[in-house]
Design a protein around this nucleic acid. Structure first.
Lengths: 238, 238
DNA sequence: CCACGGCATTGATAGTGATCAATTTGCGCA
DNA sequence: TGCGCAAATTGATCACTATCAATGCCGTGG
């Protein structure tokens, strides 16, 4: 973890428009600029640990962060990927609880830390922020429940296809002419954890999908050979 | 569904202390009293449907409500039980979305409907309400994620024991001397749905637990013969 | 009092994914 | 370039739970 002294201003942050903070005034942004701590983080580093008290929130300027949860047996589950613009660690702060999960850097990232007091001050002055985080948590709740229902009713194959389409929304490229493709930002093991299966099952599911000519995998690169058939199979409206 | 004209006042509602509304002033409660619609609902009735737009929120004065979600194939999952004092349907209202699930009466209940406009007016005047619902949704989010992690890592037997202990917290009775017991407020089918298995698997799990002398079932009544062993098995601190 | 229908249980079987074990691939680094 | 380790794949087997089918139980209404 390196601190990079020439901190850029929030006002000019390329992700600001997408964040919960996009309703702040310039004065309020200046306040954050003044006290935030920007750091340069490498894969494997932990931003906060499960069970820790909240010291503040972390805004992802660039990179990729994974939210993991440890169960009673010490096994961990990857619950969610967080992208630039997302603020992580807000739940323990706003809910006045310990962190119920931990956050790990998955790709080289710039992370801005905003300490607890700044956040609570801003919340007190500007209730819109609280409202934004409320909406955010409602969205996460819906996603978590959909996830639960999917992992109850769908087989590995379908869950994997669904997961690939979700990743495609975020990280995909290409078009109808040149073909659609996707560079998966995580390992097979994490991909497996994300849909609650073992890495072996993922490997087999991939093999079967390739046999059926739906996709072609080359390491972390995926080519969608027949994206229509995929949408059909997961029952999505294209 | 019967309207029961002599509506009691929110101020005197026995559940008020436990609700998100317990910070309202008397004036604000009067406003709700003036416009709320109380109704008498029977098991099987649906309070709101999945996909519907939100028309307001529903406060459970007495009874029991189940939150269910339909998946793409039309199969339904029981996600949560809601007890007196809980306000249901708030997510679609606050998140400005359709209902992502539906709510069904599971035991004869008194339900107070508070229409959308009243709620948004109160929210605008009293930001504490929003904060309360934020905390509520954060709590539900943690529960949903724990649920997800549990159904990934635990077998049916352990999930059932865990579920019984959760139900015991809410509906249990007895003490060390007279023994602990529980009247399960839902059918086997719903119990199965709650922990994401088939009713057959629940039946078998119950048989095995009885063979091991951990519990004794008599219909919906459960006697805990060895509650220590149960805590041991689910790894909880007693 | 019996017939019916829904709920619950029990039994037999099969499918899915986990587990264990053995390679193979890929990549950083000397 | 080749070594060494971790990640990924493949194979064989097993355990768990879903599924299908039959029976038992019980409350309701004719």
């Amino acid at each position: 973890m390196n601190n990079t002294p020439p901190q850029s201003k929030c006002l000019n942050c390329p992700t600001r428009e997408n964040t919960e903070w996009n309703t702040l005034s310039e004065d309020e942004l200046d306040l954050i600029d003044q006290f935030k701590r920007v750091s340069d983080r490498e894969p494997g580093e932990i931003i906060y640990h499960q069970g820790d008290q909240s010291e503040g929130v972390y805004c992802i300027q660039s990179g990729l962060v994974g939210i993991r949860q440890l169960d009673a047996d010490g096994k961990e589950t990857l619950l969610r990927l967080c992208n630039p613009g997302e603020t992580v660690g807000y739940r323990a702060l706003l809910g006045n609880s310990e962190h119920t999960h931990f956050a790990e850097i998955l790709a080289p990232s710039h992370i801005c830390f905003i300490e607890r007091k700044i956040v609570t001050d801003l919340l007190a002055k500007n209730p819109v922020i609280g409202e934004r985080f409320l909406v955010r948590s409602l969205k996460e709740l819906t996603e978590a429940e959909d996830n639960l229902v999917r992992s109850r009713s769908l087989k590995v194959r379908t869950r994997l296809l669904h997961c690939l389409m979700v990743l495609f929304d975020q990280y995909g490229s290409g078009d109808e002419l040149s073909g659609y493709m996707l560079k998966i930002p995580i390992s097979r093991k994490d991909l497996a954890s994300l849909i609650a299966v073992t890495p072996e099952s993922i490997s087999r599911a991939i093999s079967h999908l390739e046999e059926d000519n739906l996709v072609r995998f080359e390491g972390r690169n995926v080519h969608f050979s027949n994206i229509e058939a995929i949408f059909d199979e997961i029952g999505a409206v294209h």
